[in-house]
């Protein structure tokens, strides 16, 4: 007993500062980039806030795709559920405090995650993929039909959030929304770093590698995956709520198959299974999209397609994964 106690702090001490340092460095990079964005594009903060919201969606997708190995083309269902939950709370029930709206969005996303996860875990492979697509379409059609609650294809308008803490009002330039979004992103990112390093996160990785072996070790595969799905739903819901708060409107496109597919593309572009990759992919993809589609939206599609093919063929581990491998190789040579 005593020996164990002396060993475990020592082993922690050798591995501890390394990851702590790396996470702090990652955090610093996010904050510096956010600051640069604020200074360079003061007239385009709405785009930056949207990137932040989508980054939350991509992070949540990384939790199920990167850490659990579930390929899904329907993750926007969870994002949209959070957006509509926060939006309906504000427009129909007068709950306009932004922090409470985010909490409601997280709960809405988690509920959608529970439902989607329970359905999707029934299948494997092709069946699972088709189920994910069917779920996002089903959510989309439901939101379209229930236009009394959701505004249907016109979108849900009439969301006017209160100032944060009663101090910082949401202004025309979107400064408050931007800072609010970055703070949310940083908090969620830190929580997720802790989560994926926890025993639970390790269990999820184990399931991704070999589900049969994990279940032979006595862990319940489906219960673990479902739990991760609910967590992922909460994260996506926070992203949706942020989008609803910053744009003050929720449209059907937040629940669409296209959004889901784009989120997957961003994740793979950046690299799965590291959280950093998701952030990088979102930033690169959305900035590039804004740049190219202002010239011609159809060229944009061709370029995304070519980019996807190139990533699959030449950089299957994404931008972040490839960069890490390059650094590793340089370090090994020394």
């Amino acid at each position: 007993m005593a020996a164990e106690q002396t060993i475990s702090p020592a082993s922690k001490a050798t591995s501890g500062p390394n990851w702590l340092l790396r996470d702090l460095a990652g955090l610093a990079v996010i904050l510096v980039l956010a600051g640069i964005g604020y200074l360079l594009f003061p007239n385009n903060l709405a785009l930056l806030t949207r990137i932040t919201a989508i980054a939350l969606l991509v992070l949540s997708l990384d939790l199920v795709t990167g850490y659990c190995g579930i390929a899904t083309l329907g993750h926007a269902a969870l994002f949209g559920a959070g957006a509509y939950a926060a939006g309906i709370a504000a427009a129909h029930f007068g709950i306009t405090d932004p922090i409470i709206m985010v909490v409601i969005g997280a709960i809405g996303g988690a509920a959608a995650g529970l439902l989607a996860g329970a359905i999707m875990l029934r299948g494997h492979g092709l069946a699972q993929l088709v189920l994910s697509i069917a779920i996002v379409y089903l959510f989309h059609e439901t939101a379209n039909k229930a236009s009394g609650w959701t505004g249907g294809s016109d979108g849900l308008a009439g969301i006017s959030p209160d100032p944060v803490f009663g101090l910082f009002g949401f202004d025309l330039w979107g400064r408050t929304a931007y800072v609010f979004g970055i703070v949310l992103l940083v908090l969620v990112f830190l929580l997720l770093r802790v989560l994926v390093r926890s025993p639970f996160g390790m269990l999820c990785r184990g399931i991704k590698e070999d589900p049969v072996r994990v279940s032979a070790m006595g862990a319940s595969v489906n219960a673990t995956l479902l739990r991760m799905y609910v967590i992922s739903g909460a994260v996506a819901g926070v992203g949706g709520a942020l989008n609803a708060i910053s744009t003050q409107v929720v449209g059907l496109d937040s629940l669409s198959f296209t959004t889901s597919a784009e989120a997957l593309v961003m994740l793979v572009l950046g690299g799965t299974g590291s959280l950093y990759g998701g952030l990088i992919g979102t930033l690169v993809f959305m900035w590039f999209e804004d740049f190219v589609s202002s010239i011609n939206p159809f060229h944009w599609l061709t370029i995304v397609g070519a980019l996807l093919i190139a990533v699959v063929l030449f950089a299957p581990s994404g931008l972040y994964g490839t960069a890490v491998q390059l650094l590793q190789r340089i370090r090994d040579k020394r």
Partner: peptide
């Protein structure tokens, strides 16, 4: 991803 990429290219 590969087949979605091909689809996007064809559409464009």
């Amino acid at each position: 991803l590969m087949t979605i990429g091909i689809t996007f290219c064809v559409i464009g």
